[in-house]
Design a protein around this nucleic acid. Structure first.
Length: 561
RNA sequence: GUCCCUAUAGUUUAAUGGAUAGAACAGGAGACUUCUAAGCUCUUGGUCGAGGUUCGAUUCCUCGUGGGGGCACCA
């Protein structure tokens, strides 16, 4: 429809002797305009034509009126906008499309045939999986699913730091706390072990030396005692992470580990001495000559840092997943600056890979007391937070609908958390606020789920009353909610293009709000109403859109709640 | 010090350079013998400061101020 209007305008411009003007045809942001589409073409062409925008608008109006298929009327408004009102059947057609397509509704083929690798979550074994990981998981999952909605062959991958100084901290802590492979210890115990090791590393030089020694042994695998401690801790951690991935509905296609990227990274650095210069016993990349900053790739003990590992990781991804067209790495934005250096270095080592690698930084979750730190133990474990929100959900659902379902409560809790993460620009930091996380009113994940569940319920009632969704009998004018439905596919496109999942969140919230208003004013399960079947069709289409949109955000759409 | 990001109602936030800056929460008022009140209707209240570019600036540029992050062996 947008393209039809655009072409007609382009033709009309030519007839007025105006060439190649950059203009917009889109849904109006201003609801009071009562237009289905608007264009700013008259303003854009004003300068070139040397005439006032409204004059050009009037001329275009005269040229266009009655010539565009499915456009019922056009008017000039404000400083020179052209407003288009489309005919009634356009909305009925959209409704029909949605009912026919179901799961495919909203999908497009713009990335068809392209393989995209999306890396996200990236927790470190031996450390706690905290609410920051929940945040980064929600962002990465939605980016990955946006690629899927746009037709890409998307591989979701997770890169976990199972070697490095943090692991040495944890192993040291395990020794101190008496955690052995024989004793049954939990991931939480490991978190404590890490905090202990990390704290003492800063204050006690003897311990720090011991930890550095452990770190070397982790890489060299020469000490069997450390090896068994390491294996036990790593297994406990990774199994624990899996339980969380299941809760948040994330399925990774492939896992990568720093332990495999490490040796490859070291080799890569040593094989490229002209790129990674020797300095002070370490191997560095001189980013300063590129306007960035210098970073260490191999420390003076010869161990690869995160930088060297990440370099090797790009190659590993290709080896294991095959040639890819695009690679996205989503992390908190404290990594953003370092990633620029990394990409610059990668550009010299693997220019082909660097060109298709993109880093998406996002904000961090902070506590009211400041930044979270697993080193000091000042973190909120993801699982604790989910349990708390799920508990509150359980109580609320028991009161409002009599359902007692813990699994469902968790899905709603996850929805609340993911929505809160994805409701605004992902670049923004957020301060963790439990009260608002426990509030399910207004803009929230549960609000969208509630709307969906409510539609299922009313469609059941309608069925009992003999009302089935149909577009046979069409009301004279389209409902407001019906008009919103058509925008979904373009929302999916622009959300990916801008790497902005919040566009989906915002759209779904608007759709749900408009539906709830519709629901409050129109009776659906009423066989005596000639338009009941059409209203049921609208309700069903809204449900389909909500479900597909929620899926894009990584949120489940429960049938009841 | 320097580089990057950021600043919108009391709070959380939306707005490819376009129309009267849009929501939600909190505050105030209300409807319902009706399909799930996690709902609906009405309402009070806002662009950090100073310049600039533009027919038009929350949006782009410059400077300032506040917040966050990076700046050598953590990730």
């Amino acid at each position: 429809m947008k393209e039809t209007i655009r072409h007609s305008i382009t033709d009309a411009l030519k007839s007025l002797g105006i060439e190649a003007v950059d203009f917009v045809v889109d849904y109006p942001t201003d609801k009071s305009a009562h237009a289905d589409y608007f264009s700013n073409v008259a303003m854009a062409a004003s300068k070139q034509a040397g005439q006032a925008p409204r004059v050009i608008a009037e001329q275009l109006l005269a040229a266009l009126e009655g010539t565009i298929p499915h456009v019922a009327s056009i008017e000039v408004a404000g400083p020179g906008f052209l407003n288009f009102i489309v005919s009634r059947e356009v909305f009925t057609d959209t409704l029909n499309t949605i009912l026919q397509n179901e799961e495919a509704w909203g999908r497009n083929q713009s990335w068809k045939g392209k393989k995209v690798v999306v890396e996200y979550t990236d927790p470190n074994p031996f450390k706690e999986f905290h609410i920051g990981h929940l945040f980064t998981n929600a962002v990465g999952e939605s980016i990955a699913r946006l690629f899927m909605m746009n037709g890409a062959d998307t591989k979701r991958v997770n890169y976990q730091g199972d070697v490095g100084l943090h692991v040495a901290h944890a192993i040291y802590g395990m020794q101190q706390l008496g955690l052995t492979p024989e004793s049954t210890f939990s991931a939480r115990d490991l978190g404590r072990a890490y905090a202990l090791g990390a704290t003492i590393y800063k204050t006690d030089e003897v311990a720090a030396l011991a930890i550095r020694d452990i770190n070397k042994k982790i890489y060299s695998k020469e000490d069997s005692t450390i090896n068994t401690l390491y294996d036990a801790g790593r297994t406990v951690s990774l199994e624990y992470f899996e339980t969380i991935y299941a809760l948040v509905d994330t399925k990774f296609d492939e896992y990568f580990f720093e332990s495999e990227a490490g040796p490859r990274g070291k080799e890569l650095v040593l094989n490229n001495p002209e790129i990674f210069l020797e300095s002070d016993g370490a191997r560095i990349y001189d980013g300063e000559s590129k306007g960035l900053h210098t970073r260490v790739f191999l420390n003076k003990e010869g161990l690869p840092t995160y930088e060297a590992k990440e370099l090797a990781l790009a190659k590993l991804k290709e080896e294991r997943l095959g040639q890819y067209d695009h690679s996205v790495i989503s992390t908190a934005n404290e990594i953003t600056e370092y990633f620029k250096v990394l990409l610059s270095a990668m550009g010299e080592v693997y220019p082909g890979l660097a060109a298709k690698t993109e880093h998406i930084g996002h904000g961090t979750v902070r506590l009211a007391s400041g930044k979270m730190s697993s080193r000091t133990g000042d973190v909120i474990a993801a699982i604790d937070f989910i349990d708390e929100v799920a508990g509150a959900t359980f109580e609320k659902m028991k009161i409002s609908s009599g359902l007692e379902d813990m699994e469902l409560s968790r899905d709603i809790a996850i929805a609340a958390i993911k929505y809160a993460t994805l409701r605004g620009n992902i670049l923004q930091n957020s301060v963790f606020d439990k009260d608002s996380a426990l509030s399910f009113e207004g803009d929230s994940g549960p609000y969208l789920q509630y709307t969906y569940a409510r539609i299922q319920s009313v469609l059941d009632k309608a069925k009992e009353a003999g009302v089935f969704p149909s577009i046979q009998v069409v009301p004279p004018s389209a409902y407001a909610v019906e008009k919103l439905l058509a925008q979904f596919p373009s929302v999916i496109i622009s959300a990916l293009a801008d790497r902005a999942p919040h566009k989906v969140t915002g759209y779904l919230t608007e759709l749900a709000g408009e539906f709830n208003s519709f629901y409050a004013h129109e009776k659906i399960a009423d066989a005596s109403d000639e338009y009941a079947t059409y209203k049921a069709a609208v309700a069903k289409a809204v449900a389909t859109t909500l479900k597909n949109g929620l899926w894009t955000l990584g949120i489940k759409a429960p049938e009841r709640m």
